[in-house]
Amino acid sequence: MTTSPTPAATPRREIRNISIGDLSAYRLPPPGVVSILHRVSGVLMFLLLPFVLWLLDLSLTSEDSFERLRAAAQTPLVRIVASVLAWGFLHHLAAGVRFLLLDLHVGVDKPAARRSAVIVLATGIVLGIAAALWIFGVL
């Protein structure tokens, strides 16, 4: 009985997870950027859920608390947090719709997936900036 021939001459490239240090040099394609930002924006919204509930609480409890919310909404900190949150929501939504479409086998091939990823990123940034301008009272 002979052992199966193993081509030991050609060492196979070992594929491993990259380490943290490699992250800055790693050229993540647009779909990868959409994916990790989907996670980042999701965590952001989860962590800021108490902040959102606080805003909802102020807005609905009474006329008095509604006015306090109006005052709080003038402060730079609330405006910045709300703006970041708006981007997070918009990116998460756009990326989520993209994932749902991919699940339905829409735009699965590489050029289409890359294009939709760029559209998602742009949607988040453009609408996020628009939301921030509205929050800061510019728009």
């Binding site: 807005s59 609905l60 009474s62 006329e63 509604f66």
Partner: peptide, 8 residues
């Protein structure tokens, strides 16, 4: 919506 009553 621009006041409490409309929002609530």
């Amino acid at each position: 919506v621009h006041d409490y009553d409309a929002w609530a």
